[in-house]
Amino acid sequence: MTANPTIRKAFGDLEDFKISRAPVATEFVGFAEQDAPESYQPEVAEGSKFEAVKVSEPTGSGITHFLDGAQRQWSRLTVGFHPIVLAHTSAAVLVREERNLRLPSEDAYRGGLAAYGPDRPAIADRFGELGIPYVIVQETEEKGYNPSLAIGKRREAMEREIGQPFKADCLLVDGGIGWMLEGANTSTNYIGLVKSHKHRYFKTVEEQAVVLGLRAGERTRVFNRPRSEKQGGAAYSFYMRLHAATDFDPLYGLVRIELAQVQRSIEQADEIAGWLMAETAPLSLPDPRYHCLIYPIRMVEQYLRSRQPSDAAIAGILG
């Protein structure tokens, strides 16, 4: 019986190639999101005044599909000063039928392991021989050498790959839908649920007070989120609060929803907000983001994690 080829064997003769027993320091690998929060002043698209609106009492949810992506990385390799990161990226859409979630078909999943490193053809070839795709991390003046950003982009590409052909029913995407809308066959079926508030809208104190003063089950009027390099195509958006923030920080339970920039989205905003209120049960605990993470998205994450390689499997590949 012959043992499976390992990275240690394949790269053993390269002098500047090392396998570390412990993860390489994070600063070597870079951070996925290095940008400071940015503020914008959008236009209100629903009515004339930016204000809080009580969401209709939820009677159910019309969302049928849920999309999310995941990534996991192992930074144990270095060549010279450059870390080479092994990362598994994936994305999936789960369908909800009779209140249960499942993968509708294998086409609704993308995932794979790849190595992210500097432009060294000899190394790329050897990873190729091992059956591991090699992604060259371009070093730029602005971002420097940052494998984490490359890994994130690959994950986003996978999300777009399975999200853009989506045609039927209603798909909720974890995050913004700007990039999804660009090149999508149809746009009206996407709902983006943005949990982070790196991009902040409305600069005046009064407007911010409207956003931060939302009570559970309230939303803001719809506004126009313009196209940007970071977020992709333009979309309609509104803030809403899923859980009461009493005794918590003002961002607790606060999410921003993105919809396709069509009139129908404005008409449907209240109904969609009601759907999202319905999605607050079951709670996504024990995930610490449970206040803005709806349960089906947590399930997509769990599903994607179940298909990620384990540490033991990666140790086997490293050798």
Partner: peptide, 22 residues
């Protein structure tokens, strides 16, 4: 924790959430 389930149902046992727990 059962408390999480209680919170999600807002104490109403007949509330049927749109998604079953896995």
């Amino acid at each position: 924790s059962p408390l999480h389930e209680f919170m999600a149902h807002q104490g109403a046992p007949d509330l049927e959430p749109p998604t079953n727990r896995q």
